[in-house]
Design a protein around this nucleic acid. Structure first.
Lengths: 214, 214
DNA sequence: TCGCTGCCAACTGTCGACAGTTAACATGGC
DNA sequence: GCCATGTTAACTGTCGACAGTTGGCAGCGA
């Protein structure tokens, strides 16, 4: 039996809708019809509305009164503002990680970097999974749950932005070097150095996304 | 009658509930009864549920499946984690403000500081309004809407924490000095200096709250 | 007296239907 | 031909009611 796994319909709808948005199945600019989507998910409008509002609070949807929800569109100013927030959060996380890292944290970070290089050398097309894993490992080392949660939300929006890009450039070699530098800075135990390394890394990634936008 | 004020019932409920929570009228630890509160607000459970979920996404309420919402209680670890997030955001904002401030920004910041000192000298009991005004002015100078929005959410939770404190110490003289130092650092145009000044300020405020918790 | 079991009340989760608003279209006047 | 206006269809906002779950309480037995 499955008695305890009674996740509410609203909770399930949140996860399904999140995937639909992040995978681009509902592309940016698309309006969401409540009755249509509710039928598609096989639930009522009530739980679906809750799911929509939840994702709106995460920035994955925008609400307009009496006109429903839609997937936000990418925008240069938007990318810049988003990366300002991401930089604030991840630089702080990098600094905290440098202060609090254990030997196990460093080992884990090095392992992710090595796996990324292996995948890159093997010509793998989407090491985004490993990029996220790296940043996640760094957040674990920072041991600041609140910051980690906010970073997760911002990264999610970056993924959404990426889904709207025409040419999604593969993980670049420069980022691999950035990650190695970050691990070295975190291992050194100097918060300022780790924070600066993260700032440089994110500045590069941001610049790349801005050029991809044209 | 209020027919033309086309704010949705859910939107109104959000603001009313927010005040009820922040003013301590619904003290931390209290569970929120949907039907009771809905009758009290004169609305149905639907819009009220949306309001509850919205405030939960802001951290002003916590949800437990099948057991409803309740106001979160203060906790030392919680205060520390919250201030780590606040420090990350406001230090970045201070740095950006130092980079982007105009002459008008500096004038405004100085004006708020002077008014704070006047109020303090006059023995005013709650210059929190002016403290918030100062931080808001600094965020305006930073010109980073995303960071500003997140800071607003964090500050709101700090207010909630303060409402649960027994002895809520009045605005201290040290904070006035901190604010002056911050203005000077922002005016200097050196991001690192402004960021450090903010870090020291928030560290002091955090320490004060931790001692108030006992 | 203590522990277990079954019932019960209260509350949340969910649904279907109605009302209000918005935007687009058709229509008529200039 | 173009703009203003009335109409209409579609969608969101709101409501009341039903169903499912949770936690507590009474009753029974050891």
């Amino acid at each position: 039996m499955t008695p305890p796994l009674h996740l509410s319909l609203a909770g399930q709808a949140v996860e399904v809708l999140r995937e639909l948005v992040l995978t681009g199945e509902i592309p940016p600019g698309t309006r969401v019809n409540e009755v249509e989507l509710a039928q598609r998910l096989g639930i009522s409008r009530g739980p679906l509305r809750e799911a929509i509002r939840h994702l709106a609070s995460e920035g994955l949807l925008v609400l307009v009164p009496h006109r429903g929800a839609s997937v936000p569109t990418a925008d240069a100013a938007e990318v810049q503002a988003l990366f300002e927030l991401r930089t604030a959060l991840e630089c702080a996380a990098a600094g905290l990680a440098a202060s609090r890292r254990t030997e196990a944290d460093v080992v884990r970070l090095r392992a992710v970097c090595e796996e990324s290089r292996r995948a890159y050398s093997a010509g793998e097309r989407f090491p985004y999974r490993l990029d996220l894993a790296f940043h996640q490992s760094l957040l674990d080392a920072a041991r600041s749950p609140r910051i980690a949660e906010q970073v997760r939300l911002v990264q999610q929006r970056v993924v959404l932005l990426r889904s709207g890009l025409r040419d999604d450039p593969p993980h670049q070699h420069a980022s691999l070097d950035d990650h190695d530098a970050l691990v070295a800075a975190v291992a050194s135990g100097e918060p300022g150095r780790a924070s600066d390394a993260m700032r440089r890394h994110l500045a590069r990634v941001c610049a790349q996304m801005l050029t991809s936008l044209g």
